[in-house]
């Protein structure tokens, strides 16, 4: 599977004004891969949440970069969002990562909502915090639905002929 991986990389300043560029890039690549409108919308939010955390927590208001790596595979799109700042405490956030409705409004805290959304909207989320923070988001391509199924069949048959 790995031999057919295509990688696109993008580095943006860790500044809220550039997170839309990450979304636009994601949109272009995911559309190229044949993901549905809904799947792309889900991924846009997940990628933005990872970027939000890097902007808010990685560099303590100092300048820094966010590195995005889009790994386009036959069966999935993996988006790696990496910063070189101090690690955001994902373990702590994971404890709070829950929908809001379980509590009365007065007790609701929105911390952890970003991580919750990443987990709810992607097929897999993994976080490593060794040098900086690296968030790895995976979306599986669900083939065999609607018109995309035909595109997949035709592209694979072209490969066989080659």
């Amino acid at each position: 599977m790995k031999e057919h991986e295509t990688v696109v990389q993008l580095s943006i300043p860790a500044d809220a004004q550039f997170i839309d560029i990450a979304r636009l890039t994601l949109y272009g690549l995911a559309a190229k891969m044949g993901f549905s409108y809904e799947e792309i919308e889900d991924m846009k939010v997940a990628v933005s949440e990872a970027c939000n955390n890097a902007v808010l927590h990685a560099y303590n208001g100092k300048k820094g970069m966010i590195h995005l790596r889009f790994e386009m595979n036959a069966h999935s799109l993996v988006i790696v969002i990496k910063d070189e700042g101090k690690g955001f405490n994902y373990k702590q956030a994971a404890k709070q990562a829950a929908p809001l409705s379980a509590k009365p409004l007065e007790d609701v805290k929105v911390g952890g909502l970003g991580l919750f959304l990443m987990e709810a909207l992607m097929d897999d989320v993994s976080v490593t915090t060794t040098s900086g923070t690296e968030v790895r988001l995976t979306k599986i391509r669900h083939q065999g639905e609607g018109e995309h199924a035909h595109e997949c069949i035709s592209s694979s048959s072209v490969q066989e002929q080659a």
Binding site: N52, L105, L117
Partner: peptide, 16 residues
Amino acid sequence: TYIDSTGIGMFVALLK
């Protein structure tokens, strides 16, 4: 056209 946890958090603050 787009909202994420930032915007949702602000709506929660408004609600409170």
